[in-house]
Amino acid sequence: MPDYFHGYAVVGLVLVVGVLFVACAFAAGRLLRPLAPTPEKLLPYECGVDPVGEGWAQTQVRYYLYAFLYVIFAVDSVFLFPWATIFAGDAFGGVTLAEMFAFLGFLAVGLLYAWKKGVLAWT
């Protein structure tokens, strides 16, 4: 158990180092760079054209579908990892193989469904 936490303690340490690094970089940058804001400079940049409207107008709900698909499949695959490490154990044999194909079958059905329903086609 201590070992377990130790491993992640090192990871945490690396993270701290990284944060320090970024902080130092920003601090150094602050010392080096000029600061001369003008209203024009602070406008959103749209290749020189004055911005009109807000960003959401162009947003398509369709993106949501991908998020949805992702959530379904990614969460499914979470179950894959613990299983992957033990499925070839001595006692299991063909059973886990059958399980695997059931699992893949479900994923495949989902994919097939999305595909047939035209989710994956971009008009």
Binding site: Q60, V61, V119
Partner: peptide, 8 residues
């Protein structure tokens, strides 16, 4: 789509 209503 799958949720029955997500399509836009």
């Amino acid at each position: 789509p799958a949720s029955g209503k997500a399509a836009a």
